[in-house]
Write a protein that binds this DNA or RNA. Structure first.
Length: 508
RNA sequence: CGGGAGGUAGUUCAGCCCGGUUAGAAUACCUGGUUUGGGACCAGGGGGUCGCUGGUUCGAAUCCAGUCCUCCCGACCA
């Protein structure tokens, strides 16, 4: 158990959290980077735009992955794995999809290196080893998967296919940002095939619900479910559903997407099936995914200037116990008492660590675990034992209380639940305070610049207007909320009639 | 690809404008001791091709040219 938390003994607190949360972009970036780097989640990689996920960060991802994986299986999906390399001819089959991703593809052109005759000890790409057909490193897997599905589907009896894969993908973005936009990232991508349009739409909507459920009930990140405007739609989709979250600096973040792909990929890869009446039709498709970006969202929604704040349900470590003692005799007494507590907590399914490392002093440990966002800290000293209590500190409010050792395991379990709830409540209040309805262009610009957050405004429904608003203000339509209230209004830019408000924001 | 900032000890940085002892600080690391309820203290110690290449100079971390890399902002995007 020791070591996996990625403690960094070299970092002093001042060195770490020099910047406070602020809406000023550069400071907020610094704050975010500090949290991710010093909180022990990730490092910058030697490879441009890629990240190294440290053990602590990976444990967090694993927890998120486990929960999601269970949810996918509960909704009837199975896992599979498809190749990393996509032959260019397959990749280009679905035109819109190919076009959309073309600008950011890493491409394998050769299969061999050789020693450089001009430069001893160095290697060059062997020009003799050029591939006949280039291989695209998958930016997403629709192409290779639909090429495979073609061989799997003949009859309605073969449908639906409900497959998910956990994988890495590569998108050569111009500008990268740890977790939020890295050249390589980890994700899951679900790819389903259906006999009817309705069934596929229902699948896409269902998975959106799964994502929203996960975001809110596990990550404690409130999200708005919606559908993307045509401009923001996934390349190759007929409809893109999304969940949108709000960060503490007032910028929005797309936290997950679920696409109704219509018959676009089936047509591109010629995937037809015979229905009950023996008529041939193209298969209906969906795809849906969430990525390691969720970790970035988690950081930016909950954390504070003392470090990460992780919701208990996915925190790699939920409880840390720090002994306070003078000499081995006191330590031995504390050990006995703590070991009982640890056993009970583990029985209750709590991820707990007893940090009795004698090399670090209590104060150092307190600060370190706060930096890592561990939801609950228990300190037990001889003084406490005399009174049959322990000092329990919660990360979300920084509140400290002496609590009886009798039944402490049960107290902790309910405290964890309370912290989980509190984080969601806090984030939801913040989010709701930052959804501002506006009716005029002047107001729109003002709110965007001074307050940020989501702006609920009328829009005439055209791509041109959306484009213009984006050019002038950098704000995009994050989504048209599902179950939106219909109301007549006028587009904030053009004054043309509109039937509902949509959510604008500046976004990551 | 455009704009900005930067690359000096494991880390964060000072020194550079105005060239000149053995290149500094904090922190981290090692040894010994005292400590342990919020990032301990004392004493001692180790650690650097100052991003790289070239130039100017008696002398370059410092000036000049080139080059590579990183971060931030913008365009692109999950």
């Amino acid at each position: 158990m020791s070591g996996w938390c990625g403690a960094r003994p070299e970092a002093s607190k001042k060195q770490i959290m020099s910047k406070a949360i602020t809406s000023r972009a550069e400071d907020y970036s610094q704050w975010y980077n500090d949290l991710v780097l010093k909180g022990g989640l990730a490092d910058y990689s030697a490879v441009r735009g890629c990240m190294v996920i440290k053990p602590y960060g990976y444990a967090l991802w694993e927890n998120m992955r486990d929960v999601l994986d269970r949810m996918f299986k509960e909704t009837g999906h199975v896992n599979a794995y498809f190749p990393l390399f996509v032959p260019k001819s397959l990749f280009e089959a679905e035109e819109k999809n190919a076009e959309g991703f073309a600008k950011e593809c890493a491409v394998v052109t050769h299969y061999r290196l050789k020693t450089d005759p001009q430069n001893k000890g160095k290697l060059i790409v062997d020009p003799e080893a050029k591939l006949e057909e280039e291989l695209v490193v998958r930016p997403t897997s629709e192409a290779i998967i639909w090429n495979t599905y073609k061989g799997w589907i003949q009859s309605y009896r073969d449908l639906p296919i409900l497959v998910n894969q956990w994988a890495n993908v590569v998108r050569w973005e111009m500008r990268t940002r740890l977790f939020l936009r890295t050249a390589e990232f980890l994700w899951q991508e679900g790819h389903t095939a259906h006999a009817t349009r309705d069934e596929a739409v229902a699948e896409a909507r269902q998975m959106l619900e799964v994502y929203a459920d996960f975001a809110e009930n596990y990550m404690a990140v409130p999200v708005i479910k919606g559908v993307k405007s045509e401009n923001e739609r996934f390349a190759g989709a007929d409809d893109t559903y999304c969940i949108e979250a709000l960060m503490q600096d007032g910028k929005a973040l797309q936290a997950g997407t679920s696409h109704f792909l219509g018959q676009n990929f089936a047509k591109a890869f010629d995937v037809k099936f015979s229905d009950r009446n023996n008529t041939l039709d193209y298969v209906w498709a969906t795809s849906w995914g969430v990525t390691t970006r969720l970790i970035g969202a988690l950081v930016m929604v909950h954390s504070d200037d003392d470090g990460l704040v992780l919701p208990p349900r996915i925190a790699p470590l939920q409880v840390v116990i720090v002994p306070i003692y003078k000499g081995p005799e006191q330590k031995a007494v504390i050990d006995t008492r703590v070991n009982e507590l640890v056993k009970l907590l583990k029985l209750a399914g709590v991820r707990v660590k007893y940090d009795d490392n004698d090399n670090a002093r209590p104060g150092w440990k307190f600060a370190e675990y706060e930096l890592q966002g561990v939801p609950v800290r228990i300190a037990i000293g001889s003084r406490d034992l005399e009174n049959n209590v322990a000092e329990v500190a919660r990360r979300d409010t920084k509140e400290k209380k002496s609590i009886s050792l009798d039944g402490l395991d049960k107290t902790i379990v309910s405290l964890l639940a309370e912290i989980q709830e509190n984080l969601l409540r806090r984030a939801t209040e913040f989010r709701d305070k930052n959804i501002t309805p506006v009716d005029t262009w002047e107001e729109f610009v003002k709110v965007l610049d001074e307050k940020g957050g989501f702006i609920a405004a009328h829009w005439d429904g055209t791509g041109e207007t959306e484009e213009q608003i984006k050019e002038r203000t950098k704000a995009t339509i994050r989504c048209i909320p599902l179950e939106n209230k219909m109301e007549a209004g006028k587009c904030i830019l053009t004054g043309k009639p509109s039937t509902q408000r949509v959510l604008f924001a500046r976004a990551y």
